[in-house]
Amino acid sequence: MTAPTDSTGRPAPALSRSRRPVRLAVAALVLLGLAVLLVPPLVQLDQQLVDLRAAGLPPSPRHPLGTDQVGRDVLLRSIYGLRVSFLVGLVAALVSMVIGGLVGLTAGSLGGTPDRLLMRVVDGFNSVPHLLFGIFIVALFAPSPAAVVVSVGVTHWTTAARIVRSEVLSLRSRPFVEAAISGGASRSRVVRRHLLPHLFPHLLLATVLMVPHAIWHETALSFLGLGLPAHLASLGNMINDGRHSLLTGDWWSSLVPGVFILVPTLAVAVLAQHWRDRLSPRHRSELSL
C-alpha cells in the first residue's frame, strides 16, 4: 500500500502529526479558559488576602502551586492575572487594529500623495523602538489598564496599516473592483461593498496575532512598574514581586506566572499560524507580526 501523495507527487505529511500542535493549543486554551471562568466564582477565596503565616509555602495540597512572600495563593492569583492580562491585551490589540486599519485603508484607496505621506508617517513610527516609545507613553499617566491600552495601540498599529494597504492595493487591480469603478460606483461604495468584506478576515487574523504580543507588552510594562497598578493581580506584577523571592529559593512565585504567560501566548500563536496558512498560504510573510 503506497503512502498518500499531494498534487506534486511528493508524500503528504501525516494528518495527525500536522494537527497535533493545533489540538494541543486548543486543549490548552480551553483548560485555561475554563479556569479563568470557573475558578473565581467557585473558589471563595480573596486573591488579595494576605496571610503572613502562610508566606513562601512550597506547592502542597492546600496551595497546589505554593504561596508568595505575603501568603497569597500563587495559582489563584495567576488565574486572576491571566484574565486581567488577556483582557488588556485583547482591547489593546483591537485599538491597534482599528488605527492601523483606517490608516492602511485610507492610504491604499486614495493612493498618490496621501499614500506616500501616510507611509512616511508609518516609517517614522517604525523607526522608534516600540517598548521604549511605550514606556514614554505610560510614564505620562498613572499606572492603569487604560494607559497600557493606549501604549500598545499607539505603538503597534503600523504593521496593521502595512497589511491593509498591501491588500487594498492588490484588490484594486482585481477585475470586480475595476468593473465597479468603471460602472460609476463611488469610492465609498467600492470600499464598503468590495474592499472591506475581503479585508475583514485579514484584519481579524492580524488582531489574533497581535493579542499575544500585546500581552507580552503589558507584562513587560507591569514588570517595570509602569503598567497595571501594583495592587491589581497581573502576571507582570507577579513576576516582579516574585523575583525578590528567588534568592530565598521560592522559585514558584516567578515560574508559575511565567508559565501562565507562555502557554496561552504560544497556543494563540499556533492557532493563528494554522489559520494564516489556511487563509492565504501565499502571503505568509505579509501577515507576520
Rank of each mutant, 00 (worst) to 15 (best):
T2D: 11
S7D: 13
G9H: 04
P11V: 05
A12M: 15
A12E: 13
L15A: 12
L15E: 08
S16P: 09
R17I: 13
S18V: 14
R19E: 05
R19N: 07
R23N: 13
R23Y: 14
L31S: 08
L38F: 12
V39S: 04
L42S: 05
L42E: 01
V43P: 11
Q44D: 15
L49S: 06
L49M: 07
D51G: 09
A55T: 07
P58M: 09
S60H: 11
R62W: 13
H63A: 07
V74Q: 02
V74K: 03
L75W: 11
I79T: 02
I79A: 00
F86R: 08
L87V: 15
L87A: 15
S96P: 07
I99Q: 06
I99N: 04
I99L: 14
G100K: 14
G101N: 08
G101Y: 08
L102H: 01
G104D: 07
G104Q: 11
T106S: 13
A107F: 04
G108I: 01
G111W: 11
G112A: 08
M119K: 11
G124N: 09
V128I: 13
H130Y: 09
F133Y: 12
G134A: 15
I135R: 05
F136H: 10
A142C: 05
P143T: 02
A146P: 07
A146R: 15
V148D: 00
V152C: 00
T158C: 07
T159N: 05
T159V: 12
I163M: 06
R165N: 09
L169M: 14
L169Q: 15
F176R: 13
I181T: 13
I181W: 13
I181E: 14
R189Y: 15
V191H: 13
V191N: 10
V191T: 10
F200T: 14
P201L: 12
V208C: 03
P212H: 00
P212Q: 01
L221Y: 00
S222P: 01
G225V: 02
L226N: 00
G227C: 01
P229Q: 02
S234K: 03
R243G: 03
L246Y: 05
T248D: 04
T248I: 06
D250M: 13
W251T: 14
W252I: 05
V256G: 03
P257G: 00
I261F: 01
P264M: 03
V268I: 11
V270R: 09
A272P: 09
A272L: 10
Q273D: 14
H274M: 04
R276C: 01
R282E: 12
L289D: 02
L289H: 13
